[in-house]
Design a protein around this nucleic acid. Structure first.
Lengths: 334, 334
DNA sequence: TTGTATGCGTTATCAG
DNA sequence: CTGATAACGCATACAA
């Protein structure tokens, strides 16, 4: 048997479909007795609104799509929490699409958006394609997009971010303040816009202290555990070992910590470590990780609010939120 | 300006809307010249299908909804990967809904499903409500649901899981084999069905070895880092300290490890630790964590395949997948 | 190979 | 307060 429609309900309640619809959306405009009859018919049939029909008629879906590059990356979870709370407060359902940084999957979600299944989107990563060009989008009346964090300042879309360069500067300055002079940086992947910003902050901090930025102190990385382990191997192989390392994210720092521990290199006695992000596990690293906290829930919430404004016809400006240096046990004096 | 419709395309291409539709869905049935005219008109207008209209007409949405209890829990990411690959192979878009184990949010996603916005759902957690009662659902022609892992055997829905009791038994037997006799278990939350299964396996393993299951060796927990730390506090406060602990998940084990390290208690020298799940960070714990690996990608893929079968009208049986005891460095002889 | 016409289930407008 | 009816944009059966 097939799904009951509004018509089935109407017939059973002995009213017109218009009245049923009103009972569902503006209950107080219909007579109490009628309303009761209708609602009872709704229960009796197990009726549910057909979203496709509703959405076709109303020209909106009451859904936001959040495109995430990698759900497995714990960094994103709290952002999602912030988004969700704002979204549901506005009566929207938040749906997450995991692009896996794959072009094909990203395309699939973009199509989803273009097909009108979401009223707008939040983008948590550098898009693989340039489909999001804002002027074009707006001209065509397409659903708006707000980007979070991993996006360049000139990319077009409205953005929520922190001052990545400043944060990197603060992290490295903390190490310098502890007396470190030979400080390495383990960078993110070249393809990621954040990488350049954090490298720039690292270099600027060195310069501010009258230090040279040495190429051999800039380690490659890809945000993964393994590249943290690789960084340790490289660290250990060097004649002039750095006394401190600043990592472009926490996960790489954790990989380094694991390798260091196994090799008998102690943190912070032998080397100081600073991460970036303050992910959930940073507090339970051994030792607990000094890192840059991004206000993730706030970032998500702010982005969602921006999106709602845009949907509402306004044209808000991008937002920059404050970061925080969280000093734990992985950093110490030289 | 508003979104172009199929009619705009038809007008510009000088054909009927039926032909446009055919160009999009059955291109080879339309003359090459016509097709070219149409596709060019599509490009020119920037036309995109209206999913609501299509879905209303076709009575399906080509979408699967995956309900996750907590996106921040790294355990779920690989499951999602497995689901995604099967889903996209079948031409379906995978959408993730994060219920946050909240009844209200779960309801929102269930409504989403009931409203026909997804053709089926995958449930990665114990539902908060009993809305998923299968016989009722099928009778009403509602979208099918397949559950993964965290669900009781009699709950109704088709399920993909591992033998949790057997896995717990294997973990504890491993400890017993190493000579441990006083073995504690840090359990999951009572509300979670897995908790009882793993406790049962723990007890059975003790009994098999002629040991008593002592209530004071069963620690409460909630799957969070903090309850792992609490377990350490309790462990340290005991007169007769266990020589080994089996945790109902890796995250709690990690919390324990961090506290133990800080207190100078060494693993596995002073105490052996076994986790459950083999999450991403398990290999980078200090020391690397012995744990039970669940074939997460496979579980996701299997669940998706089951769902597709059900959507296709079949009535497949539940599936149980093999687990694996991964022995790393956190367990050693007494 | 193409066009015409109908209906998918709602919401909103307009009368009554 | 309630009912009839016209879109919404598309896919498809049927006719040409």
């Amino acid at each position: 048997m097939s799904r009951p429609t509004i018509e089935d309900v109407a017939r059973i309640a002995g009213v017109s479909i218009a009245t049923v619809s009103r009972c569902l959306h503006m209950p107080d405009v219909v007579a109490v007795k009628t309303r009761e009859r209708v609602l009872s018919a709704v229960r009796q049939t197990g009726y549910n609104l057909n979203a496709a029909a509703q959405s076709l008629r109303q020209r909106r879906s009451n859904t936001v799509l959040v495109m995430v590059p990698d759900i497995g990356n714990t960094f994103f979870s709290k952002i999602l929490g912030g988004i969700e709370s704002e979204a549901s407060a506005a009566g929207l359902t938040m749906l997450i699409g995991d692009t896996g940084r794959s072009r094909a999957r990203e395309d699939a979600y973009v199509r989803y958006l273009l097909n009108g299944r979401a009223d707008g989107a939040l983008l948590l990563a550098d898009p693989q394609a340039a489909w999001f060009d804002i002027p074009t989008r707006n001209a065509m009346g397409l659903p708006p997009i707000v980007a979070i964090s991993e996006i360049g300042p000139d990319s077009g879309p409205v953005t929520v971010s922190i001052d990545n360069e400043g944060a990197a500067h603060a992290a490295v300055s903390h190490l310098i303040g502890l007396g470190h002079r030979r400080i390495a940086h383990v960078a993110g992947p070249d393809s990621n816009i954040l990488t350049a910003q954090r490298v720039a902050g690292y270099r600027r901090a060195l310069h501010s202290a009258g230090l040279q930025a040495e190429p051999w102190l800039e380690f490659p990385g890809d945000f993964g555990l393994t590249s943290g382990r690789a960084a340790f191997a490289r660290f250990q192989g060097q004649d002039q070992r750095p006394s401190a390392l600043f990592f472009a994210n926490d996960e790489m720092a954790m990989g380094f910590l694991a390798s260091a521990y196994a090799a008998g290199v102690r943190v912070p006695r032998d080397v100081s470590i600073v991460g970036f992000d303050d992910i959930h596990f940073a507090q339970s690293c051994i030792p607990a990780l000094t890192t840059i906290r991004q206000p993730r829930a706030e970032m998500g919430a702010a982005a969602m609010r921006l999106l709602l404004e845009i949907i509402g016809g306004k044209a808000p400006a991008s937002v920059q939120l404050p970061y925080e240096l969280v000093i734990r046990d992985s950093t110490g004096p030289v």
